[in-house]
Amino acid sequence: MLIRVSNENYTTQKGRESWGPKGYIAYSKLCTHLGCPVGLYEQELQLLVCPCHQSMFNVTNGAIPEFGPAPRPLPQLPLYIDAEGNIRAQNGYDQPVGPGFWERHNV
């Protein structure tokens, strides 16, 4: 999911200073509760809402779950803007996307 939150470089969390070039930030759309697409956006509160079980994720601070049964933030995809002005990913997600499972290492 690509969201533009400002015109400046946007930092959602410490250590992610370079992940949001020109205010473009990207999150995985798979809810960390049961894997539904987090498809609703509450604009006033800047919350992403999952229509399945109403988990809400705060866009501005790294998609930390603020409400509902989801246990983890949505993983953020580090972005950069290349020389031609295209938005690209620096690399993949730093953790598995979607719901939890036994073999998942990342806390």
Partner: peptide, 21 residues
């Protein structure tokens, strides 16, 4: 039940147990 159960997940020792599910 999935909606009202709190988001209590276990993640430690290299494993995750999604108790919330």
């Amino acid at each position: 039940a999935l909606r009202i159960w709190p988001s209590w997940s276990f993640a430690s020792f290299g494993h995750t147990i999604p108790f919330e599910v």
